[in-house]
Amino acid sequence: MIAYIVRRALYALPILVGVNVLTFSLFFIVNSPDDIARMQLGDRHITQQQVDAWKRERGYDRPLFYNAAAAGAARLSDTIFFDESLRLFVFEFGRSDSGRDIGHDIRQRMWPSLAIAVPTLLIGILVNITFALIMVFFRATYVDFWSVMLCIVLMSVSGLFYIIGGQYAVGKLLKLVPISGYYGGWSAFRFVLLPVVIGVVSGIGAGSRWYRTIFLEEAGKDYVRTARARGVGEFTVLFRHILPNALIPILTGVVVILPLLFMGSLIIESFFGIPGLGSYTIDAIARQDFSIVRSMVFLGSVLYIAGLLLTDISYTFVDPRVRLG
């Protein structure tokens, strides 16, 4: 297994380099170093001399990929790309174009994101699996029919509607929780309650239907019929036989997103005023802060690769037939 993990980690390196090149190219196609400087310095009364000085100070006066004026290896190393990208591989994010320590920002903002994302995921899985099992248990009855209808309705509603509707109904009309805001520590509970509920409810439709399909497929298999023929109770069939065997597709969808949880949710964080990482990248793009953009894209890539690896590893735990070598 260790050899497999090392091999996958080595495979990741060219992927990460590729992601970096792509991010860098896309960003600088849209924003020139002059644009970045003007965004930081402001629009009013700024002269080209001031723009040039700002670029010089931050190394944005160098060529992007290839420095023809330099000699030897410096032709590649004395460039914006090399300088901005290499440090990322040791997770040194450096400073944003506005001067902030990116690593510190990430460490500070990941906790509020996790405070919403983790309970949303865990409660969501629990609710979705439970609901799906209920539908399977009551299959071909009115419960199954109306539950599927409910799922379709829930799936058809826009995510934004859940947020605005939730804030209006729970925060404004019923006045049960704050409409938006955030405080750390135990106070956070009041503030994450509504976003978590909205996150769970908005995911019930798609999640439950997906799990129902998986469970129904398992329920039709011979071993389930055999279990029933042997007089095994319906609960035991569902929880001891169907659920464990349906775990592989569930894990495929869930484990891969585990590491990405701390990247946050843009819309939920924005509407609820949660100071998480969800809006960090978007704000950075709006402010043309390349240092943050490249750090967050790099981090996202690393975490996605880690998620895929974790998924593979998790298969070995739920299915003894799977061996990683």
Binding site: Q167, G171, I179, F271, G273, P275
Partner: peptide
């Protein structure tokens, strides 16, 4: 001063 990015929660609060 609290961060309030969206108009709707700002107005309701």
């Amino acid at each position: 001063y609290s961060l309030e990015k969206e108009n709707i929660p700002y107005w309701n609060k």
